[in-house]
């Protein structure tokens, strides 16, 4: 199968203030069209750096990111991103509706089409009744729903999510996970989902990429052979879920120890 996204021998070194930090060592992986890949790693594993390289927001030191058949040299069209910090990724001076409409409007969508896409996206995330509200009038979970609606309305081929639910409470988090799975399935988007939460990675993913501590490599590319339909209760209490979870957990613990050892010596 041809891949939609390919990350080839990515390396990222930050230089500055007399310090050289190798955030990403040597990282390669690929995603097939329509796949849901979770990326999990210990904190400080350069997950956000990786995502920003894939998004074209920062340039890798060496290596390349290829989306479709084009090398990523800046944010490519057909890609949407949902950031962790929902409070800072929505425009506080625009209403919820305008926030979702802005990218389409800028790219010249026709009036009727625009209205339909925005209304549908907001309905899909369960926010059909707050069009005129401002983001800061909503709870954190609802704000992240607006960010997801903006991504849906944009009709991307690939969606990147950077620890999107790290700042919401557990109950909201479960709801948003299921919402994201529904959106992914319904639109056939390729989804790259970065998280530090092992359970979340196993629950959401078709594949889980386990990253080492910085300088980051892929330790394991783990296929998640759970039933396609995920359910917060049934899936999470299944024996297979526990096995997969333990496997990821062990890898991460080992990566953390190795990372800590490197820093001390």
């Amino acid at each position: 199968m041809t891949q939609l996204l390919e990350v080839r021998r990515l390396r990222k070194i930050y230089e500055g203030h007399g310090r050289i930090v190798e955030a990403i060592g040597d990282l390669s992986f690929a995603c097939a069209p329509g796949e849901l890949v979770c990326i999990v790693g210990p904190s400080g594993a350069g997950k956000t750096t990786l995502l920003k390289c894939v998004a074209g927001l920062i340039a890798p030191t060496t290596g390349e990111v290829v989306l479709g058949d084009a090398r990523v040299a800046g944010p490519p069209p057909g890609m949407a991103v949902v950031f962790q910090d929902y409070g800072r990724s929505l425009f506080p001076w625009l209403t919820v509706w305008r926030n979702v409409a802005l990218p389409l409007d800028h790219h010249g969508a026709a009036r009727g089409e625009l209205r339909r896409l925005v209304d549908d996206a907001l309905a899909e995330v369960g926010l059909a009744d707050v069009h005129a509200a401002y983001p800061w009038q909503l709870s954190g979970g609802m704000q992240q729903r607006v960010a997801i609606a903006r991504a849906i309305a944009y009709q991307p081929k690939i969606l990147l999510m950077d620890e999107p639910f790290a700042a919401v409470d557990a109950q909201t988090r479960a709801d948003l996970e299921d919402l994201t799975l529904r959106v992914w399935r319904r639109h056939g988007i390729t989804l790259l989902f970065v998280t530090h939460d092992i359970d979340e990675a196993v629950y959401m993913g078709q594949r889980v990429l386990i990253l080492s501590a910085s300088p980051t490599r892929v330790i394991e590319d783990l296929a998640i052979d759970l039933a396609a339909e995920r359910d917060q209760l049934a899936t999470r209490s299944s024996p297979r879920f526990a096995e997969l979870r333990s496997r990821v957990y062990e890898h991460i613990q080992r990566a953390k120890r190795a990372g800590a050892g490197e820093v001390r010596t």
């Binding site: 074209g56 927001l57 800072r88 990218p103 800028h106 944009y154």
Partner: peptide, 13 residues
């Protein structure tokens, strides 16, 4: 805000 600025870049604004 840097995140808002990144958001604009991602959506080609």
């Amino acid at each position: 805000d840097e995140v808002l600025s990144d958001t604009c870049r991602c959506y080609g604004i």
